[in-house]
Design a protein around this nucleic acid. Structure first.
Length: 286
DNA sequence: AGATCGCCCTGCTTGC
DNA sequence: TGCAAGCAGGGCGATC
């Protein structure tokens, strides 16, 4: 499951292997992979043809490729299982190959969107004046964005009538935080996932934001070292997950702080992992 | 209008 | 051994 650090690794790979190249042909092999492109797969392919790809960009878990001589961008989201691969043209098709983009050069490689579960996809959209694909204009900056406004985030958090994990996953408040990093940051901050944001003292909220940045930065440091190959990605198994998680996926394993078994609770059709001792439930749950 | 929640998808794991 | 249920979960959009 690619989260922000993995998506950033993919972005860097795209910048290295795809930016500057001109699209020759696009092949859409599964309509669901372009479902956000409402005009359909044939239109998607036609619009890309002949255009040169600019510098790869990212916000939260979205990434996009501006088309140099237009005011539009190819928007991508990896969903749960998406991969963007730069493969030799001669490589056999992956089982779940959904979109293939060939280039008008002699490098001998092509860009492939591979996605088992098709939660992700590619689409083409007009840019806003900020150079953002219009359909993601509502997505907040992510915490690794230099322009992320900490004070504004903390104020907005306080005003929300919701619980802290819901807020962390709300992409209009802060983007790029998924279930894994939310649980990790909450464990580090010793906060229960159902803690109302309104009762969170500002210093605790400030700490929590710091924890979010720390876990993401740690994962990026690990994943960022492995994009050296021809593969643009990276399927989310950055290695960070195996070694460094403190809460997520550790049901019944001892808390690394106090030894109490980590618990898993169903939550919003997902799971929340937490230490019942370090992360006490709020007194009033209404 | 802000908050909540069902749904989309498929391969692996678990349990009977 | 085989089948079915459970699980993974980001984000859209319907609903309240």
């Amino acid at each position: 499951m690619p989260e922000l650090p993995e998506v950033e690794v993919v972005r860097r790979g795209l910048e290295r292997w795809v930016s500057g190249r001109t699209v020759a042909e696009t092949e859409v092999l599964h309509p669901r992979a372009v479902r956000r492109h409402t005009a359909g797969g044939a239109d998607f392919a036609a619009q890309l043809k002949g255009h040169t790809i600019g510098t790869a960009r990212r916000r939260g878990k979205y990434l996009w490729l501006p088309l140099a001589d237009t005011d539009a961008s190819i928007l991508g989201h990896l969903g749960m299982s998406g991969q963007l691969l730069v493969q030799p043209e001669s490589a056999p098709d992956e089982k779940h190959l959904r979109i293939r983009i060939r280039f008008a050069d002699t490098l001998g490689t092509e860009l492939r969107f591979v996605d088992q579960r098709t939660f992700g996809g590619l689409s083409l959209h007009e840019n806003t004046p900020d150079g953002l694909p219009d359909v993601i204009a509502h997505i907040a900056r992510d915490p690794l964005d230099p322009a992320f406004d900490d004070a504004a985030f903390l104020t907005a958090l306080k005003l929300r009538r919701t619980t802290v994990k819901r807020a962390l996953l709300d992409q209009s408040l802060i983007s790029g935080v998924g279930n894994i990093y939310a649980d990790e940051a909450l464990w580090r901050g010793r906060l229960h996932y159902e803690r109302p944001t309104a009762t969170l003292p500002r210093p605790r909220a400030t700490e929590l934001l710091g924890h979010v940045r720390d876990v993401m930065t740690a994962a990026l440091d690990v994943g960022g070292t492995s994009f050296d190959s021809l593969y643009v990605n990276v399927n989310g198994e950055s290695g960070y997950f195996d070694r460094s998680l403190d809460a997520y996926g550790r049901e019944d394993e001892p808390c690394r702080r106090c030894g109490t078994p980590i618990r898993r609770r169903p939550w919003m059709n997902r799971s929340s992992y937490f230490c019942p001792r370090c992360q006490r439930a709020p007194r009033v749950v209404s």
